[in-house]
């Protein structure tokens, strides 16, 4: 049976890389006696994958892992077993059975939702500048960013505005600012929120270049034919 598990990555878990998280899950599954199916061939590997690797240093409330087990187990059973085997910082949110076992998550995901936060902008002036930068970003029709192509090494310009579905200031208090964005995520079109931060900093002017931002992934989505966002955990 194939399962989709939603989990979070908080606290110092943000420093654990994609590959190390894979091993962490593999060992947690082993400890809880959930036997994975293995691929055939010369060097078999467990059928398990994490959708859309998260950048090192980001936290998340919407990570997904899918895997196939040798025997059928109730989704709640898997949820319960894994929940008890995770280190501090990783919480298991949900588990569902995936009926469509052919499609991989990476191919389904099209959008990702992120919170870009800053708790260092202490003065009202800084907060205001940040809000204005976000508004300016939103108002633009095109935002071109130079990008070096991996294969050819050629420099091209990419319009990142087209990859941002929405950008809103969610909170702007004296303590912190939170900006929520929904951006292209997946194998077709992808935007690293880091590029948004680069632009925001640019719009805020030189004085605020040193501000540190924190990024948290909130959710990942696939889209219906009408373009509605469907959070991944609803699949299955």
């Amino acid at each position: 049976m194939k399962y989709l598990v939603k989990w979070t990555k908080q606290g110092s878990m943000k420093y654990i890389s994609h590959l190390d998280i894979m091993r962490l899950f593999q060992r947690a599954l082993k400890r809880t006696d959930i036997k994975l199916r293995y691929s055939e061939g010369y060097s078999p590997h467990p059928k398990m994958s994490i959708a859309q690797p998260l950048s090192l240093g980001y936290t998340s409330r919407g990570e997904y892992i899918e895997f196939e087990t040798q025997t059928d187990l109730a989704a709640e059973d898997i949820l319960g077993r894994l929940a008890g085997a995770m280190p501090e910082g990783i919480d298991i949110v949900s588990c569902s059975v995936l009926k469509d076992t052919k499609k991989a998550m990476g191919a389904i995901i099209t959008k990702g939702e992120y919170l870009i936060g800053c708790d260092e902008a202490k003065t009202g002036k800084e907060i205001k500048a940040l809000c204005e930068a976000a508004a300016y970003f939103k108002s633009m029709e095109k935002i071109l960013v130079k990008k070096v192509q991996k294969k050819s090494g050629k420099e091209t310009e990419v319009d990142i505005r087209a990859k941002v579905r929405s950008i809103t200031v969610e909170e702007a208090s004296s303590e912190r600012a939170l900006i929520r964005v929904v951006v292209d995520t997946g194998s077709n079109s992808h935007l690293n929120p880091e590029l948004i931060i680069v632009k925001l900093k640019e719009y805020m002017g030189e004085k605020l270049q040193g501000l540190e931002f924190h990024v948290q992934r909130e959710e990942m989505y696939t889209e219906s034919e009408k373009g509605e966002l469907i959070p991944l955990y609803l699949l299955g």
Binding site: G11, S12, M13, Y15, S17, P87, E212
Partner: peptide, 18 residues
Amino acid sequence: EKNVMRVEKPARYIGGEL
């Protein structure tokens, strides 16, 4: 927190292991 992302293998310095 502020500095560990600047170094190789930050996970060396954070603890919290099983």
